[in-house]
Structure formats: C-alpha cells, structure tokens
Design a binder for these strands. Sequence first.
DNA 1: GATACATCCTCCAGCTGCTAGAGGTTCAAG
DNA 2: CTTGAACCTCTAGCAGCTGGAGGATGTATC
Lengths: 145, 145
Amino acid sequence: MLDMLTIGNLAKKTGTKVQTIRYYEQIGLMPEPERTAGGQRRYGEDELDRLAFVRHARQLGFTLEAIRELLDLSDEPDRSCENADAIARRQLRQVEQRIARLEALRTELKRMVRECAGGQTADCRVLEVLRDHSECLTDHDEIGA
Amino acid sequence: MLDMLTIGNLAKKTGTKVQTIRYYEQIGLMPEPERTAGGQRRYGEDELDRLAFVRHARQLGFTLEAIRELLDLSDEPDRSCENADAIARRQLRQVEQRIARLEALRTELKRMVRECAGGQTADCRVLEVLRDHSECLTDHDEIGA
DNA sequence: GATACATCCTCCAGCTGCTAGAGGTTCAAG
DNA sequence: CTTGAACCTCTAGCAGCTGGAGGATGTATC
C-alpha cells in the first residue's frame, strides 16, 4: 500500500483528467482498481503503465476501440504481432487520408482569404465562394476532418 | 407554390440528409419553412441557397457556430467584410494546425510500422513504442485531430 | 480528539454534428 | 379510393470526454 496512487496523482502523472480515468474504467478500458476502506480508488504500477499506453495511443490518434484491441494483443505476448501491425497500418492510412483532405481545404481557404479585398460583405469573396460551390477548384466532397 | 420543394427534394439537391435539415431548423440554422395544410415542410429558393451555403461551409470544415456567424454577416451586405475574413482566416489557421499535427503523427506511425519485424507481440515495435513514450521523436502532445 | 479543507465519491447532463428508429400521418399517382 | 412512398414528431444513440451537484473521505494541524 506504500506506492499506491490516488486517482488525482495518477491523473497528474499521465496528463489525464480524473473524470477521464473514471470514464475509461466505466467502459472497461481500465480495470477496476483497489479501493480504500472508505471507497476511494488506489492505483499501482500496472495501472499507471496501462493508462500511459492508452494516452499515448490516443495522442497518436487511435480510437478507443483500436486501443482496446492493442491492449488485448499486448496481453498475449506469444501471439504473432501481425494484428498489432495491421492496426497501426490502418491508423497510418487514416491519418494520410485526413492529411490529404485537409490540404485540399487549406488550398481553398487560402484562395478565399487571398482574394478578399476587404470591402463590404456584399462583395466579400469569402461569402461569395461559400455561396457558389462552382467556384471551387479542389475536391472537398466529404464533410468533416 | 409551384416551385416549392419537399424536404426530401431539398435534401437531394444539396446532398443533405432529411434529418440533418430538420436538425438545422431545430438549432436555428435554417428558418422555419412554410407548411402545407397537412403540416409538411415546403422550401423555396432562399432556403435552397441558404442550405447550400451551410453545406459548402461544412465541407470546408467550418463549425456550425462559425457558419452561423457567416450567415449573419451575409445578411448584412453593408457591413465591412472584415469579420467574414477573420472567420475564414481563423479556419485556415486551424486547418494548418491540424495538418501539422497529423504530419507529426504520420511520421511516428510510419516509423512504428517500418520497424515492426513481424515476430511475436512480445517484441512488437508497435506495442513497444506505445508503451514507452520516450521512444517518440516528434511532438504529439495534444489529443485528437 | 476536533476541525478544516482538499480531494474523493456517484450520478447525471451536456458538448458537436449528426443519424437511426418507432409509431403515426399526408400526399400524389393510378 | 386505395396504395405506398415520403412525410411528421419524438426519443435515443454515436465518440470521447467534460462539468457540476451534492455529499463522503483522507490528511494535516491544533
């Protein structure tokens, strides 16, 4: 019980909010930790490592579902790492698609901003381009990032 | 009443889902349209233009809040277009930040995938990197896209 | 022991931007 | 006049958290 962390300290060490940790527990991404007699959570090294893993994967843009898979794989050290590799490749593909899409947006936004002469909204290029899709040069058909 | 559109036809013309149009009405982004005696929505040109504007701005990644501002500006043709310009610039900055961030992720993911030798999960580079943040070369501190 | 007060607890609601479904009504064509 | 597609309202759900209310606990100090 010496090196046990409160949820607040665990949060600090991993750069996570307290509520987020409880949320991860609720959805089964983090295990139910030990509790004090009074019902407060206490965490050990294992949980610290696990949460660090989760956070790091989140920073790399993995979904919680993908992280769940990675954690499961990580728990079975004898299996082939094919699966983990596939998940990472999939993530890489998604990131590349998002970059391509955002680059198209950037082009269009830059053009809008560049052409704005700064007069009245009646002649604003920004608003005009938004009004008339046919003025766009790039493809940006899907919505979202 | 001749050239009035049903919600379904408006949806088709703008590439929007019917529910989404009703949602936009609910949050005040689209006006309450005329109704038939039986209570069905009927749309005219103005609404078609407005929805096209909204959809186009969404495709360019503007938030609904930003779109609301742009629509308000668009309704006041005499005012300076400074504000519209500022909104577009802000959007451009955000897109550029997201690109920079995703590029850092791409670098890291590529490295992970490249180094994976295809053995067992115990030695998997993908999992190892996720476990140990210090192995990362790039900054990717914020979460999300 | 008593007290103070930071931190913890659970539960619930809300964020963005839609999307889906249940259960019922209206419209237009034949 | 009947059929059937499209419409209506209402509610709930998705990801991934975040915040707050209202109350209990843990620890330091007196």
